[in-house]
Design a binder for these strands. Structure first.
Lengths: 235, 235
DNA sequence: CAGTGGTCTAGACCACCGA
DNA sequence: CGGTGGTCTAGACCACTGG
C-alpha cells in the first residue's frame, strides 16, 4: 500500500490533473522550474525530474531557453509489446505446443538476401512452424535466419524452444522493426492453421538486428478470430 | 550536431553495449551505483539517473536492497501511436477528405449503454463516416459518444474536424484502451470503402475516458491492402 | 540581458534485502 | 548488520531563447 506520494509525484499529478481536466490547454505555458520550486518548497532537481518524466510521457514539451508548454495531445500512444508466443501462452495458464514443418538450409533469392544483408545465393536457414495453444493453432511462423548471427540455429529442438527464444539468447537484440497488417492466409497456411482461406488474419512481418548483422526476418500469421492485440493508455 | 555525450549517457551506453553485445546475460548483476560512481568518477545522482532510465526502457530490473540485474529480454516492445487520421494523411502531404454518412442522436441498447457507463435507453450520439486519402477510402469510422462528455458534439462540421479531434479538444483524454484485430468488412462497409467483401481489414476498437465519463467508443476499419501499422524498437 | 531549461555535485536520510 | 536502491537538497555552471 502506498501511503504517501513523493514530492516529484506530487508535482506530476498537480500538472497532470490541470491538463486532463482541461484547465491548461495544449500550447499553454506550464510554470517554470523556479516557480514550481517556490510553490512546492522543494529543490530544483526534484521539479526537474517531474518535468523530465512528463516530457517522456508526452504530456509537455520543453524548449531550453524558452519554457515548458502543454503538449498537443492529438494522439494516443502506448507501449505495444510483441512477446515470445510460448511465454504468452504459458502465462495464460494454457499448454503450449508446436508443429515443426520445415527446418532447412537454402540458397537465398535476391530480395530475401538483400533484406538479410547478404549476397544473392548465400546460405540461409529457413524454418516453418505452427504454434498451438491448448492444441489449437494460433500462429504460423515462417522465418529466415542469417547463419552469421546464429550458426547453430538448425540444431535447436524447436518443440522445446521457439526460434525467437533461441535467437534472443544467442544473438542479443539491438534493433527490430515490424509491420502489422491484415491479410488472407492463402490455401496452404489456412490448412495449417485449420481455418477457412476466407478468414481474415493478422500478420506481423518482423526484422531483427543483432549487432552488425540482420539476424532474422519472420512473418507471423495469426487467425483473426483467435488473436488480437490489446493496448492501454493512461494520462 | 552532438559532439559530447553527457555523463549519464556514457553510463547508459556503457551498460547497453555490454547487454546488446551479449557480454552481460539476462539475470546477470549490473555494477551497483557505488561501483559505477567510482568507475566513472561521477556523483551518485548521475549514476542513478542512468539506471533509472534504463529501467524505464526495460533494459534492467532494479530491486531495492537487492541490486540491479539485466532484464529478461524475451520481448520486443515499442511505442505504438494511434494518431488522428487527418493529421496523419496531411503529414504525408496528401489531401484529406471525409464523407459523413450519419450524424444522429439515438437511444442506446443495453451493451452499448453499459460500455459507455450509461443506463439502457439513454441518449447517445452516433456518427458514421469514411475518411479519404487522395480520394481513396482508408478508414471507416463508426462512433458512439457520451453526451455528458461532449454536449455540442453533433454541431461539429465533421468535414473540417474529425470526431476524434473535436473530442480531444473538448474532453481531454485521461485513459484509453484499444484492441487491434483482423476481420472481414461485411457487405455494407466493403461498399463504403470500395473494396471487395472478401478483403481482409484491420479493425481498431477504441474506448476513451475523459475524467469521470467514458467519452466515446469507436470502431475503425482499415482496408488491409491500404493500411498497416509500423513500429520500431532500438536497444 | 534576464529567464529558461540541461546537467552535475557532494552530501543526506530512509526503506529494503540478505546474510 | 552492511550493502543496496529511492528520494531529496542547495548549491553550481552552462547553453539556449527572447526581447
Amino acid at each position: 500500500m502506498k501511503l504517501q506520494l513523493f514530492a516529484y509525484e506530487q508535482v506530476k499529478t498537480f500538472i497532470k490533473t490541470r491538463i486532463t481536466s482541461g484547465a491548461w490547454k495544449p500550447g499553454d505555458a506550464v510554470p517554470s522550474e523556479a516557480a514550481l520550486m517556490a510553490q512546492f518548497s522543494i529543490s530544483r532537481m526534484t521539479v526537474n525530474r517531474a518535468l523530465r518524466e512528463l516530457t517522456a510521457e508526452g504530456m509537455v514539451t520543453r524548449i531550453q531557453g524558452s519554457g515548458t508548454r502543454v503538449a498537443e495531445l492529438h494522439r494516443i500512444s502506448s507501449r505495444l509489446t510483441i512477446r515470445d508466443i510460448k511465454e504468452e501462452v504459458e502465462e495464460r495458464g494454457h499448454t503450449y505446443a508446436s508443429t515443426v514443418l520445415l527446418v532447412a538450409s537454402e540458397k537465398a533469392a535476391a530480395p530475401l538476401a538483400k533484406s538479410l544483408g547478404l549476397g544473392t545465393g548465400s546460405k540461409v536457414f529457413h524454418t516453418v512452424l505452427v504454434h498451438l495453444e491448448n492444441g489449437i493453432p494460433i500462429q504460423h511462423e515462417d522465418r529466415y535466419v542469417n547463419p552469421m548471427a546464429a550458426p547453430d540455429f538448425l540444431q535447436t529442438d524447436f518443440t522445446c524452444f521457439t526460434p525467437a527464444h533461441h535467437l534472443l539468447t544467442c544473438a542479443p537484440l539491438t534493433d527490430a522493426s515490424y509491420q502489422i497488417e491484415a491479410c488472407l492466409p492463402g490455401n496452404e497456411i489456412a490448412k495449417r492453421l485449420r481455418i477457412k482461406p476466407s478468414e481474415a488474419c493478422l500478420a506481423i512481418t518482423r526484422r531483427t538486428v543483432s549487432g552488425a548483422h540482420v539476424a532474422s526476418v519472420a512473418r507471423l500469421v495469426y487467425p483473426g478470430t483467435r488473436y488480437s492485440f490489446a493496448g492501454q493508455f493512461q494520462a
